[in-house]
Design a protein around this nucleic acid. Structure first.
Lengths: 209, 209
DNA sequence: TGTACATCAGTGAACGCGCGTTCACTGATGTAC
DNA sequence: TGTACATCAGTGAACGCGCGTTCACTGATGTAC
């Protein structure tokens, strides 16, 4: 077949359009016409719009969770202590490598994560935390010994500040990049921005009240 | 009159409901019935739903911009150098004092700011940056001498990381607080969280690549 | 002071529209005997 | 090998519904002379 099959075409279009406009603002008619697919195909393959939203997240997060689990296994097997920076680098590598270095797609998916938090997608939050709670808990548990000076409350808030910085800046990456004057050129390339972000987070997370 | 007048009741209901659910997910019917007001009153007083959204932002941001301008005037008149921490404290005091220490309302408004960034409210972004661009540019210009070690690009990205940490964590404050176990009690009071946030930001913003 | 008119906040009902979903249907492929 | 039936991806048209907006209208208050 010259084209990808229907299910993938729907997921591709939905992912891009949701990231661009949000969930409520993207209609099934827009998705299906972008995907060159019949309107009824979404309900045929996924059952509902809600289920389509979940499927978009699962398609992205499943490889990410696998990659993260694998890297954590390796790191723990090596038996040496994992520093905060080790853990940050590990996470960012897992995120970036999970989809074949398609950095743009990763950045645009960050928008979806941001939307999932801000928009009232309760069904999605519950679904994702049920499905990926284990690996994220495991990661946070490794953060504790890496930051021995911090109380649990310190760590809780600092990780959420860090999450906010990451989600917000990556999800607005396109708009932010456009704000920088053209002559800064190389400096704003996304890999550089991620290095900046990691440095920012690394400094912030270590702070205790 | 026993009740506030119609315009204020509409704005109160809209602010709360938008923050809770997002713009597209909140219908005029929900707003007007919450406000005990006729459905047509929104279009009568504001002209359209878009204009209502803008009015909600203006009602909150106008006192904030005034308060910030006043404090910047005072600080610059004192003629002593403003450190990064001086500037952060100044901004957070301006934000918190702009609405009579109603911290909860301030936190819920942060959700609206987050939504304005993530949801496709292009009209809103343009409108707000036209209206409040001057005072925010003035603030950023003061940040530069306070962080002499940073290049403009450093400062650009670091301020946006900081903005992300602030918007995300305050806008999800309710949900995050609920995640903390009950026995941490006082520790999560919002004033404490803001102190934590300022410390996090202060450390992060100083970082250069 | 009294009358005529203008202004304005607010109302109730209806408008057309785009939405997610449903349903009867088609046509291709696979399976049983 | 041939026929009958089942399965399944995909389709076109329609469904009812909730949405933002409009419009003719009411009733109270203010203004002019």
């Amino acid at each position: 077949m010259a084209q990808k099959d229907t299910v993938d075409r729907i997921l591709d279009a939905a992912e891009a359009l949701f990231a661009e406009r949000g969930f409520a603002e993207t209609s099934l008619r827009t998705i299906t016409s972008t995907a060159n697919v019949n309107l009824a195909a979404v309900n045929y393959h996924f059952g509902s719009k809600k289920a389509l939203i979940q499927a978009v997240f699962v398609r992205f997060l499943e490889p990410l969770a696998d990659s993260l689990t694998l890297r954590l296994d390796e790191a723990e097997a090596s038996a040496k202590e994992l520093s905060l920076d080790d853990l940050l680098v590990l996470l960012s590598k897992a995120i970036l490598s999970a989809h074949g270095d398609d950095v743009t797609r990763t950045a645009s998916f960050m928008r979806l994560l941001g939307l999932a938090y801000t928009q009232s997608q309760g069904h999605l939050r519950d679904y994702l935390s049920e499905r990926y709670g284990r690996v994220s808990t495991r990661y946070v548990d490794l953060l504790r010994p890496a930051c021995p000076a911090l109380t649990d409350t310190d760590l809780f808030w600092n990780t959420h500040f860090a999450l906010g910085a990451a989600v917000f800046s990556l999800s607005n990456y396109g708009a932010l990049e456009a704000m920088l004057s053209d002559d800064s050129g190389e400096e704003s390339k996304i890999q550089n921005v991620i290095r900046r972000l990691l440095a920012f987070i690394s400094a912030g997370v270590k702070v205790s009240l």
